[in-house]
Each structure stands twice: as C-alpha cells, then as structure tokens.
C-alpha cells in the first residue's frame, strides 16, 4: 500500500500532473503523522500512511500559500474525501484541477477515534483513485448518533450547565476554525467588528456565541472529520455540536454532506413541504 502510494505520488510529480502532493510524513513512528508538502519526485519516500494520520489535509486546498504552489494532489481518508465534495459544491476548489488520492482506512488513533468507530466510508468515495483495501465494517445509522442520544437524554438545564462548564474553558484560540476544511472564509464573522456579531468579552457567553456560530455555519456542511475536536487545546467535545446538526440534517432532509456529489445542498434552498410543526 505504501509503495503504491509513493509510486503514485512520484509519478504524478514526475509527469508534471501536479506541482505538490499534500500527504503525511512522520518523524517518530510512535508519534503522530504531520502534513508534508512534497514538490519533488525524489521526496516522495517521506510519505507515510498509517493509523496516526489524523489530519484532514483537504483543509490546505483552500489556503493561499498552498494554492500558490500550483496544482495539488491530496491524500484523503474516507471522511476527508467528503470535504472535497463539499468544497467543490461550494465553488472553493475546481475539482478537475485537484488530484484526490483516496486511502483505504481502517480508522485512526489507538484506540480508534470516536468518528472511526461509527465510520461507513472506510473506502473513500468520489476520489480519482483509491489505494488499498479496507476491511468491511457494517454500521447502522443510529450508531452514528449514539453518543448524542446519551447527551440528549439529559435535561435541558443539565445540558446548558454542561456546555457552560465546557465553554468556560474555551480560550478562543480558533484552532477549531484553523483546522476545519469548511472554514475557508477570508474574514471570519468572529473577526467582524462593525457590528460585533460575536462578543469578545471574556465571558462564557462570548465563547458560546462563537461555538454556536461555528456549529451553525457547519450545519449540513460538516463532514464529521472531527479535526476541530482533536485540535481543541481545552479538550472540548465539539464533535457533539456538529453531530446535533448532522443528525437533524439526515433525518429531515435525508442528506449527509459529502456523500453524494450531485445532491443539492440543504441550506440556501428550501422545499415548500419542509416541516414546520414548531411554527405556530
């Protein structure tokens, strides 16, 4: 598998099909892998792929510095592949000019991350090629939201207390925004000050307003790569916020972002038949 990967990358660079391969490198085999940007065929030996390859590399596709390097090939796991689809739908990348190398994946982390335990895309979809073969994992839809069900079984004030507690630890470092492939805005609403949409004062409310914005801007767009959660230095389980909207989107609109490259996005559209039982 690794040989295939390096061979493919080498070929792409040698044939000048791409100018840069965004992949994973690893200095310490026991430590996590990190993103590498390979521009010369001979450097492809640095590439690795294993269960320490956490990053969703597609986030780099929209970065100015990377765009400046030219045409890119990017390594994606099944979850990351979905963000490529969303980015293309949202006109952020020209899908034709990016080479997407899918990597069969049996999950990352030891033990596996929460997202991997409920993953149903071990074989990446909508890629230009897939390297390797993943084991078969049967996942029921309800499993994806099991963690959420547990939280929702608590009372509203317990939940509010939980999030109040959690978000009091947020330091607004915006690491969650930085790693998110869907957070590509040039000027984030959090940085807008006339008017100031999100309070900057050092209270929990400001943090909550920020996280509500982050989560809702990802509504029906978040592909569940969970990079935000992994990146959070305060260890806040941001994944839960994303799951809430993912579940609602799936239930209400039968839509999972990034699964079907031809599906209409959910927001910015409507159906006259949308449910409105909550409206009097």
């Amino acid at each position: 598998m690794l040989n295939d990967l390096r061979q493919t990358a080498r070929q792409l660079l040698a044939d000048k099909k791409v100018d840069v391969v965004i992949g994973y490198g690893q200095a310490d085999p026991a430590g996590p892998a990190y993103p590498v940007f390979i521009t010369r065929p001979e450097d492809t030996e640095q590439l690795v792929f294993n269960d320490r390859c956490y990053n969703n590399l597609t986030t780099f596709l929209t970065r100015k510095e990377i765009r400046a390097m030219g045409r890119a090939a990017v390594l994606v796991k099944g979850c990351d592949a979905k963000s490529v689809v969303v980015l293309a739908v949202e006109s952020q990348i020209d899908r034709q000019s990016v080479v997407v190398i899918g990597m069969a994946c049996n999950g990352v982390g030891q033990p596996s991350l929460a997202k991997c335990r409920t993953c149903d895309v071990h074989m990446p979809r909508h890629t230009d090629m897939v390297i390797g073969q993943a084991a078969d994992h049967a996942i029921e839809a309800k499993d994806r939201y099991a963690e959420l069900a547990e939280m929702m079984s608590k009372s509203a004030s317990e939940r509010l207390a939980y999030w109040g507690q959690e978000l009091s630890r947020c330091v607004k470092c915006y690491a969650c925004r930085q790693v998110c492939p869907m957070c590509y805005c040039e000027r984030c609403v959090a940085d807008k000050n006339q008017p100031q949409v999100i309070k900057t004062s050092a209270t929990t409310m400001g943090n909550l307003a920020w996280q509500i914005n982050r989560a809702f801007h990802l509504a029906s767009r978040c592909v569940g790569c969970d990079e935000c959660t992994r990146a959070c230095p305060a260890g806040i389980n941001l994944r839960l916020l994303n799951l809430m909207l993912a579940q609602a989107t799936e239930e209400q609109f039968d839509y999972r972002p990034g699964m079907d490259k031809d599906a209409q996005p959910v927001l910015g559209c409507f159906s006259v038949k949308d449910k409105e039982c909550f409206i009097k």
Binding site: S91, C185, R187, G268
Partner: peptide, 21 residues
C-alpha cells in the same frame, strides 16, 4: 467583495436570482 468567500450560497438562495458569480 473584499471579504466574500465566494461560496455562492447567496446566489442559490436569492429569490430573484439577483446575485451573480
């Protein structure tokens, strides 16, 4: 136009097709 990220959600949503790319 300086801060627009060109996601074109507004283009999809506009009831009058008044927004262009």
């Amino acid at each position: 136009e300086q801060t627009c990220a060109a996601c074109f959600s507004c283009v999809r949503g506009c009831p009058y097709k008044a927004i262009d790319e």
